[in-house]
Design a binder for these strands. Structure first.
Lengths: 344, 344
DNA sequence: CTCGCCTCAGAAAGCGTTTTCTCAGGCTGC
DNA sequence: GCAGCCTGAGAAAACGCTTTCTGAGGCGAG
């Protein structure tokens, strides 16, 4: 008897019956296997079209052992950086017929491990984006997540390529820029403590301080969003610094907004810099001086690395390092000599 | 013989062997079926832990006929609005143990249909976000995509709830606000032609014009991003309007940036308004007057609707309508009487 | 003319689960 | 003491597909 669409949806069996052939033949035709008589193939195709048959991906995945899906775990989907990475990844993967499953850990590092495992089991590979978990934990679970690509984080575990941005160099470039403008008192509005990219920035600043002992660099606590910058106005003014390196563009924008409310002029009174060069950066007033990171490209490259792993190709590059590019705009200007007086 | 991890990964069979029971029993234990002897259950659990067994979701999906995954199709992942919807959706779905698969159609409406179908087959339900396809096409494919929830679009197809924002009312509120400030010459920087939300805005403006015949409203072509706004400066000035309603916040920001470059003051010379109230809006200089849409909540509600459909509950509400809320900030001010002179 | 090879389609065995079906054993109740 | 019920675990079917295995038929070569 014809088990007609037991589940409501039409399956390979229905097509087989309609075309008067076996399941196997239908499968062969649908997969472009040419060991099938052209006439029969045409009949099958006609039946498939008529029934609007579309192979069930789950059955297919089970049989083939692959899902044509990759996962990405991000700490915070609200962060433009991760959004851009996701976009680049999704776009690149789509071109190779892969889809992207997203997992947002909401900055909870314990969630991260679980989400990563679950996502990985449903997918053919995983991109772990700036994970907040400890090095030890990362190294422990990394093998079970392969094929795995890391972004802005490295691990000692083997076979796990990393894509990292050289935040250390970028922050030094920005600091140099400010020094060239005559600033001698700088302040760094730091990012989330658990963020590896924040640590890289701090290291870069240490190197900068070593090379420029005459420049004073104050460290201020911070975060990664607007409100952090907006709320840091007092601390910034208190520091007496005339050149402020914000953790990222969002923080810089929040800070500029706060300074504006206080009637201070950027860059007349204080110069402000961001990091990342998010699309908004060039449209702030004044336009934000920042270090451009090819974020979308990062996502794209993540896919290329992951694809190589999935295909079991020899990944020539075990990872890549991206150099930020200084983008000088209008939010930085010559240091104001009288600035210290304001402070005093 | 023990078929020990034929695929490399350990499966239910390995656990069964280790615990000395059948596959079925292992499955029962893993699913919390209590018709199993506590002692045996404990033995199975111990074996599972020791082997680090994690059920294969693909096999599970095939057997259960569900994937615990939903899909979302967006026209452009770079658009902050869709990012926010995605975030709300992902967060809400995650709380119910569902994951989100994303598909970006890159504004290509023909892609949309295919992506939607593919995503749907891999998932238990679908959210179609501001689809660009025609009404006819949407109505045709909608039934095959159910459970389906639409955002910012409606369809005549049955059983497909819609979440729509009342852009028409929102744009009227903004226009009223400008009129109250004394503006009599307005201009609307339109969005993408295929966008349904743009049409709603246009309809709203028609209603506004009918109610305020004394106010001149110029329609200008546009788009949905920064560059659109930035590039529209000439057209805006040419229109002679003193109150500009930009399609959304991005366009407004681009426009303000362009006006600033020309040395024009906002709101001194021209008032500018946006739409959406994206997070950046309150941090522009001047802070942007806009109509706030609870975008993240929209994503959240989309999940609730979809969940009801998936669970086959009686969806009391066939959809919802969201009222934007006028957010008056610093980018709008009293009309400048001499403005027409500048124009003439 | 017959043997063997080659082509091509159907039968069936997976893929890794869940779940129904079956059945053995222990218990209750008469 | 035995029929019938109930508990609980194993066997097997099912989910929808791919792919190996099997075998029938056609053809060429000896």
């Amino acid at each position: 008897m014809v088990r007609k669409s037991a589940s409501g949806r039409i399956g390979i069996a229905d097509v087989a019956v309609k075309a008067g052939v076996s399941h196997a033949t239908v499968s062969r035709v649908m997969n472009g296997n040419f060991t099938v008589d052209p006439e029969i193939a045409a009949r099958v195709r006609a039946a498939a079209v008529e029934l609007k048959y579309q192979p069930n991906p789950v059955g297919r995945s089970l049989a083939l052992g692959k899902t044509d899906t990759i996962g990405i775990v991000v700490p915070d989907l609200a962060n433009p950086t991760f959004q851009a990475i996701l976009r680049g990844l999704s776009r690149a993967a789509a071109q190779d017929g892969y889809r992207v499953l997203i997992a947002d850990s909401f900055e909870v590092s314990s969630e991260e491990t679980i989400l990563a495992g679950e996502a990985r089991r449903r997918c053919d590979g995983l991109v772990l984006c700036a994970p907040r978990m400890s090095d030890a934990e990362l190294e422990e679970i990394a093998p079970s997540l392969r094929p795995l690509v890391l972004i802005n984080r490295t691990t000692a575990a083997a076979g796990v390529p990393s894509l990292v941005v050289d935040y250390g160099q970028g922050v030094q470039d920005i600091a140099e820029h400010l020094v060239e403008l005559g600033h001698t008192r700088l302040a760094f509005l730091a990012g989330p403590p658990r963020s590896a990219s924040n640590n890289l920035r701090l290291q870069g600043l240490q190197a900068f301080k070593a090379a420029h002992p005459q420049v004073e660099v104050t460290m201020l606590e911070g975060g990664s969003d607007f409100d952090t910058g907006h709320g840091a106005v007092d601390a910034v003014l208190e520091s007496g610094a005339t050149g402020i390196l914000a953790f990222n563009d969002l923080v810089a924008m929040g800070l500029m907004s706060g300074l504006h409310e206080r009637g201070l002029d950027v860059p007349g009174d204080i110069s402000v810099t961001g990091f990342d060069d998010i699309p908004f950066a060039r449209y702030t007033t004044p336009a934000l001086t920042t270090a451009a990171v090819p974020i979308t490209e990062l996502g794209e490259q993540a896919w290329h690395q992951l694809r190589a792993l999935i295909r079991n190709e020899e990944s020539d590059a075990p990872g890549s390092r991206y150099q930020p590019k200084l983008e000088v705009r209008a939010s930085t200007g010559p240091a104001k000599a009288a600035r210290t007086a304001v402070h005093g």
